[in-house]
């Protein structure tokens, strides 16, 4: 499941979730319900846009751990069409970022997508 989700990011720049018991549409998917352990269901494509549900602003990034050297924010994003939130980062226009902000995925260039959650380079604020 994880491998196919990552292939979707890498090859098609599309984000897929999975509809599982007890959790609704889970993004990113793991192939089972994390609330009751039951095996997963149908694939559902979700939008690359969504709403921020939590923000942690990192003013002093930790080298070789954090994804960038400049100040950035970790966020949880509930993508449109998803029922769970994805952990990711916002790098620009941090002054506009708050819980409730709408954001959209910024894709890594084709040559830099290797089949990882970081094939989404970051999210950016759109409202």
């Amino acid at each position: 499941m994880i491998g196919r989700f990552l292939a979707g990011l890498k090859e098609d720049k599309r984000i897929w979730g999975q509809r599982v018991a007890g959790q609704g549409v889970v993004v990113p998917p793991v192939g089972y319900s994390e609330t009751d352990g039951s095996a997963g269901g149908d694939w559902v494509e979700v939008k690359p846009t969504g709403v921020v549900t939590a923000v942690a602003r990192v003013h002093r990034p930790i080298p070789h751990l954090h994804p960038c050297a400049e100040p950035f924010a970790f966020v949880l994003v509930k993508l449109d069409g998803a029922d769970t939130a994805l952990a990711h980062v916002v790098r620009d226009h941090l002054e506009q970022l708050r819980i409730g902000s709408r954001v959209e995925a910024v894709w890594a260039p084709d040559a830099e997508r290797h089949g990882s959650i970081r094939d989404i380079a970051c999210f950016r604020v759109i409202s």
Binding site: V30, Y32, E34, T35, D36, G37
Partner: peptide, 8 residues
């Protein structure tokens, strides 16, 4: 793995 184990 807690979710995978049905341990939630």
């Amino acid at each position: 793995l807690a979710g995978a184990l049905g341990a939630h």
